[in-house]
């Protein structure tokens, strides 16, 4: 019971309290600053090692899938190859083993095995996924922006103004009016700086207070679901 409930709650309490107290003291207050620095260092180390947890789970899950010949088990083989190959390039490169010298491109500009993988496989795949956003934004806008009522109309008009104001085409649309070239851009900036900022701040303040309230519940052990614990 102590290890399962009291100890995690005590650790949470201390890990939450120490940075708060440290925030209110100067650097000379070593009594609070030293534990706080130590805590921050531990966080960096734990964050680094935590990735091993995930890797072990991925390997276990996919080996199990291959053993059971579950649906799509062939893909699990490719996944494991994709995990092991670049991973070993990186590890061997970091320790300068044989031809796997370094993880960055070599001094003459030629790629190391790991950097080759990063530049010609990883980066293009990443950019491709992100660029899908343009397609999805278009389809979501087509579906969502309808003049259903007054609010929806205002939303639509604001969206169109900002979209036009963010491109040179919008500027040239009004260029025939004296001073019109800058009008749309100026109006867009006004929309972003005023109505947009006002709404953002409202949500930000509410969310910040919500986050602070949740933090307090966590530190005091009132909110425990993230530990897999229910209230007594």
């Amino acid at each position: 019971m102590f290890l399962r409930v009291q100890l995690p709650l005590l650790l949470t309490f201390l890990a939450g309290l120490i940075p708060i107290v440290a925030f209110f003291f100067t650097e000379k207050a070593r009594l609070v600053k030293v534990p706080n620095d130590r805590l921050e260092k531990w966080m960096i180390i734990i964050a680094g090692f935590a990735i091993m947890l995930g890797v072990v789970n991925v390997v276990q899950g996919n080996i199990r899938k291959i053993e059971r010949k579950g649906p799509g088990w062939h893909y699990a083989i490719f996944l494991l190859i994709g995990l092991v190959l670049p991973g070993s390039f990186g590890l061997l490169g970091a320790f300068n083993v044989g031809p796997f010298h370094g993880i960055s491109p070599h001094a003459d500009g030629s790629p190391s095995p790991f950097s080759f993988f990063v530049s010609y496989v990883f980066q293009p795949l990443q950019a491709t996924m992100f660029s899908l956003l343009a397609f999805y934004v278009a389809s979501a806008a087509f579906r969502a922006f309808r003049v259903r009522n007054l609010e929806a109309t205002i939303l639509l008009l604001a969206a169109v103004v900002v979209m036009l104001g963010r491109i040179p085409l919008g500027e040239s649309l009004f260029a025939w009016i004296p001073g019109g070239k800058l009008a749309l851009g100026t109006f867009t900036e006004w929309l972003m700086n005023n109505p947009n900022t006002a709404a953002q701040r409202g949500i930000m303040i509410g969310a910040a207070l919500g986050a602070a309230s949740l933090s307090l519940r966590v530190i005091l052990g009132i909110e425990r679901s993230y530990l897999g614990l229910e209230k007594d």
């Binding site: 806008a141 922006f145 036009l164 963010r166």
Partner: peptide, 24 residues
């Protein structure tokens, strides 16, 4: 890159107009 952004924004605005015409 702004050339691409200009065309894409114009296409999105075009689709919003088409969607609303169809809606009406």
């Amino acid at each position: 890159g702004m050339d691409v952004q200009t065309i894409i924004h114009a296409i999105i605005i075009g689709f919003i107009i088409i969607g609303n015409v169809a809606y009406f």
